[in-house]
Amino acid sequence: MKHLIDIKDLSVEEIDDLIKVANDIIANKEKYSHKCDGKKLATLFFEPSTRTRLSFEAAMLELGGSVLGFSESSSSSVSKGESVADTIRVVGCYSDIIAMRHPKEGAPLVACEKSTVPIINAGDGGHNHPTQTLTDLLTISREKGRLNNLTIGLCGDLKFGRTVHSLATAMSRYSGIKFVLISPDELKMPDYIKKNVLEKNNIEYCETKSIEEHLPELDILYMTRVQKERFFNEDDYVRLKDYYILNKAKLENAKKDLSILHPLPRVNEISTDVDDDPRAKYFEQALCGKYIRMALILNMLGIK
């Protein structure tokens, strides 16, 4: 049984294959419109997430399949005290594949230990979000034409931001990658990512609080939102939430072919005056999310 819990579950070759299929889907949409006829995707969202859930559902619908599920735990048996293990066993009876999001870290791993159908982790707390990483990789590969020899700025909440942890892990497997880690002291990249991922793979990186300092060197600027739901103390959140605000003026010294990415939703960290800049790629990125999820669903269901 194939599951996707962590981006590390996929080899570089498997990621390359998914990107290849996603690009083929983008070029030949009609060819894929009935690939999942009769198949059902269950989207189990124990924590609300409009974007990821809709992206999964749109992906399955465009493949000809159908979707079922819930969008928050209050509308599921969880509110009656049902365990993840039991929910998954039951949903496996009604669907061919499950995409699940859960606020507790490691919940998708519990699910895949009990599941009779493939599980896709659609985000577990501050831990993993592999399909966002696949989305980021497809976007970078389409914008830059490569996944190696890139200087990537990761900016904002690098402590709790699972997307940046997964992206750093995934990109560390490609050659010629350099990271600029831009965050306030309180939200710095955790040591275990720096030691076990970056240093272990001999990836060059530097840490800074200034977004302007290294901007002219960057090929990719990956902005993140400071997530309120990850803080136990609201005062800390209020103090840090607007630490970085990217606007048009700040981009003056950036490369002409910089790609600005953001996993969305954004709050204030990217000013809306950046949206019209040709370097703003975050809405293209959201679209890439649907296509890579289509490629992933096909792969996990074993459909060519």
């Binding site: 870290e105 577990d124 707390g125 501050g126």
Partner: peptide, 13 residues
């Protein structure tokens, strides 16, 4: 010790 870990809430895990 992670309060966000699934082991803090899932029964019989």
């Amino acid at each position: 010790k992670n309060p966000r870990c699934i082991t803090s809430v899932e029964r019989d895990l």
